[in-house]
Design a protein around this nucleic acid. Structure first.
Length: 99
DNA sequence: AAGTTGACTTTCG
DNA sequence: TCGAAAGCCAACT
C-alpha cells in the first residue's frame, strides 16, 4: 500500500498493549512517530480485525463509535478499569505508557 | 496533482 | 459538564 510502514507500526504498537490497559489514538500515533490520530483509526477500521482494537480508545476514554458495546465486553473480561458509567475507560488507571 | 473523507484531538462557547 | 468549530495527518478518488 501507500504507507505500509505506518500501518505495520500501528498494528505493532496496538498488539503490544498489555491486557487490562488501553491507549488513546493520539498516544499510538505519537508512538509511531506521527500525530495522525485519525489515520490510526483508519488503519484500525481496515486492519483492526487482527489486533485488540478495543485496547485503543479516544482521548475521552470512549471506545470507537459503533463498537462501544463490543469494547465494554472485552474490558469486563480483561478487568480493565472503567468509570462509574461503565461506558468509558478510566484513563487515569488503564492508560498504558510505553517506555 | 488536487480535493474529500475519516474507529481523532484540542480549544472555545 | 456538554456542544460546536478548527486543526492535523494519512489514505482514497
Amino acid at each position: 500500500m501507500s504507507e505500509p510502514d505506518f500501518v505495520t507500526a500501528v498494528l505493532e504498537v496496538v498488539a503490544d498493549i498489555p491486557p487490562g490497559t488501553v491507549m488513546t489514538y493520539g498516544d499510538v500515533a505519537s508512538t509511531v512517530g506521527s500525530r495522525a490520530a485519525r489515520a490510526v483509526g483508519t488503519v484500525m477500521a481496515h486492519y483492526g480485525s487482527e489486533v485488540p482494537w478495543w485496547r485503543v480508545v479516544r482521548a475521552s476514554g470512549h471506545p470507537a463509535v459503533g463498537h462501544e458495546d463490543r469494547a465494554v465486553e472485552h474490558y469486563r473480561a480483561e478487568g480493565t478499569p472503567l468509570t462509574r458509567d461503565g461506558q468509558r475507560v478510566d484513563l487515569a488507571a488503564a492508560r498504558h505508557r510505553p517506555v
